[in-house]
C-alpha cells in the first residue's frame, strides 16, 4: 500500500512536468505570434528578437485599408459553407445505404469512398487544373466549393455512416410497420437521430476546407477567389517582403471561429477525426 502511494506521488510530479511542459510548447509560439500581430512592423524582423514590443494596431490598419479582407472572408465562407452543404446532400443518402442495406459490393464501394481520402492533392492537381480550365472555372469561388466538397466527401460519408450504425434498428422497424417508406424513414428518423454525427462531420469538413492550400493556390490566381488560407501568401510578394504582423492578425481572425466550433463538438472530435473508427 505504502509502495503504491509512493509511486503514485512520483508519477504526479512527472505528470505535471510533462503536461505543463507540453502546454508551454503549444501556447508560447501562439502567444508570441499574437504579439507579432500587435506590434509595429519595425519590431518584427530585427537583429535581436524583441520579446516585449510596443503595442500597435499597424497590422489592423493595413488589413482594413490595403487588403480586401472582407472579400477574402466572404470567399472563404461561400466556398466552405457551399462545400459542406454539397457534402451533406451527397453523403447522407450514401451513408444510409452503407449503414443499412445489404447489397453486392457494399464493402468495396465503402472502401473506395474511404480511399479517395488518401489521394494526395498533388496527384490530382495537374488534371484538376486542366479540368477547371476547360470548364472555364479557374479563379472562381465555385470551383473551390466543388473541390472542397470532393476532398471531404469521403470523410463526411464515413463519419455519418458510423453514427447511423449506432441507431437501434427497432426505431426504423416500428416506423416501417406503420407504412413509412425508406426515404421518409431516412428523413424523419435517421437524420434526427444521428444529428450529432452530421454536425461533427460538417465541422470537421469545414475546418479541412478552410485549411486547404494547394488547390486554392492553383485555382485562385487573383483576389477574385482568394480565401483566407491562400491570401496569407499574398503578404509575401512584392518589395515589402513578408508582412508578418498582418499575417499573424489574419491567422487569429481565422483561428477564433474554428476554436469555437471545435469546442462545441469536443466530445465527438476523436470519432470524427478517425472517420468513425474510434468511438470517443
Amino acid at each position: 500500500m505504502a509502495k503504491a502511494r509512493k509511486s503514485r506521488g512520483e508519477s504526479m510530479l512527472l505528470r505535471y512536468l510533462v503536461l505543463g511542459g507540453w502546454a508551454l510548447v503549444c501556447l508560447l509560439p501562439i502567444l508570441w505570434f499574437l504579439s507579432i500581430g500587435f506590434r509595429p512592423r519595425t519590431e518584427v524582423i530585427t537583429p535581436q528578437p524583441i520579446y516585449w514590443p510596443t503595442f500597435s494596431l499597424d497590422a489592423w490598419h493595413l488589413l482594413m485599408s490595403d487588403w480586401p479582407i472582407a472579400k477574402y472572408l466572404r470567399n472563404s465562407v461561400i466556398a466552405v459553407a457551399g462545400s459542406v452543404v454539397i457534402d451533406l446532400m451527397l453523403a447522407i443518402p450514401a451513408a444510409y445505404a452503407l449503414a443499412r442495406y445489404e447489397f453486392k459490393g457494399r464493402e468495396d464501394i465503402g472502401f473506395y469512398i474511404l480511399s479517395t481520402r488518401m489521394m494526395a492533392p498533388a496527384i490530382v492537381a495537374v488534371p484538376i487544373f486542366f479540368l477547371f480550365k476547360t470548364l472555364g472555372l479557374l479563379d472562381s469561388v465555385w470551383a473551390l466549393m466543388l473541390i472542397y466538397a470532393a476532398i471531404n466527401l469521403s470523410l463526411v460519408t464515413w463519419i455519418i455512416r458510423s453514427y447511423m450504425l449506432d441507431i437501434p434498428k427497432e426505431l426504423e422497424d416500428a416506423a416501417r410497420t406503420d407504412g413509412a417508406g425508406d426515404l421518409t424513414i431516412l428523413r424523419e428518423i435517421i437524420v434526427p437521430a444521428c444529428l450529432p454525427g452530421i454536425i461533427t462531420a460538417a465541422v470537421i469538413a469545414a475546418i479541412f476546407a478552410i485549411n486547404e492550400f494547394l488547390f486554392t493556390l492553383l485555382i485562385a490566381s487573383t483576389s477574385n477567389a482568394y480565401t483566407m488560407s491562400v491570401a496569407l501568401a499574398n503578404f509575401t510578394g512584392g518589395s515589402d517582403g513578408i508582412i508578418y504582423n498582418a499575417i499573424a492578425l489574419v491567422s487569429f481572425i481565422a483561428f477564433v471561429p474554428i476554436l469555437i466550433l471545435v469546442i462545441l463538438i469536443q466530445k465527438h472530435l476523436s470519432r470524427g477525426l478517425t472517420m468513425g473508427a474510434v468511438k470517443g
Binding site: 503536461l19 507540453w22 502546454a23 503549444c26 501556447l27 509560439p29 501562439i30 508570441w32 505570434f33 507579432i36 518584427v44 524582423i45 530585427t46 537583429p47 528578437p49 475546418i207 478552410i210 485549411n211 492550400f213 483566407m228 488560407s229 491562400v230 496569407l232 501568401a233 513578408i242 508578418y244 499575417i247 499573424a248 489574419v250 491567422s251 481565422a254 483561428f255 474554428i258 476554436l259 471545435v262 469546442i263 469536443q266 472530435l269
Partner: peptide, 28 residues
C-alpha cells in the same frame, strides 16, 4: 488540457508555416 493541446491544430497550415518560418529564419 485538451483545449490547450488542440490549439496548434486549429491554425491554418499556411499560418503555422509562417509562425515557424519567422521563428527559425526571419525572426531568429
Amino acid at each position: 488540457w485538451r483545449i490547450v493541446y488542440l490549439m496548434p491544430m486549429l491554425f491554418m497550415p499556411s499560418a503555422v508555416a509562417f509562425i515557424w518560418k519567422l521563428a527559425f529564419n526571419d525572426g531568429r
